[in-house]
Amino acid sequence: MALLNLHLKVWRQNGSQPGHFQDIEAPEIPDHASFLEMMDIVNERLIANGQDPIAFDHDCREGICGACSMTINGMPHGPERATTTCQLHMRKFRTGDTIWIEPFRARSFPVVKDLMVDRGAFDRIMQAGGFVSIRTGSAPEGNSIPIGKDVADAAMDAAACIGCGACVASCKNASAMLFVSAKVGQLNTLPQGQPERQRRTLGMVRQMDAEGFGNCTNQYECEAACPKEISVRWITKLNRDYAVAAVKDIVGAGRQQAGGEGGD
């Protein structure tokens, strides 16, 4: 086990007050520590010295919950591909390195404290259409709706999104298109998602815009930063689905059949 001596530049901020970078020395960090464990060590030392520990989000620490965030050296979740911050290890850094640690920056992700941001915007986008309506009651027979293997696999690829927000943080425009496209795409791909397909697509995009996220400029920084390697082809599909849904909305298709001003 090697020990690393690191120089940290950590963003410190209290709510909506202006923030600043604090230089923190982090000597003797074991290289087998995860990035979050390094933060724990730094915090323990700060507390021992009577200083304010650094606030950061974390939960499962096994790369599946989407809670941990942090932009490390300008890259959400750090430089490792397909890796969350909790799964990033200090052996990827060298002793003497300066590490910039910042929150996921976007107007729609207001800073709560230090590195913690409020990602409630994603929840509100999900509420706008990230669901299927089903009858409650006894569980339906699992194989009653036949779903092709390729369709199920594609939906599963989209469902791998853990909603961490790295796509927004990495995007030059703080756009949430990769997140929204994965969530819309997952349900729009499956037969269970078809009844609400149009309403979902319009509703989730509208909420995304209302939250103040930027617009996609097809630069694909999101895909490079995504810890779950969600493909930008989901954005292609969202663009296509949205154009179709918008045209149907403009001409009112689906309303006459329903016998009135139903739907959205």
Binding site: G74, W100, E102, E223
Partner: peptide, 10 residues
């Protein structure tokens, strides 16, 4: 803006 800006693929 980020204090440390990085561009991976754009």
């Amino acid at each position: 803006r980020y204090g440390c800006e990085a561009t991976q693929v754009a």
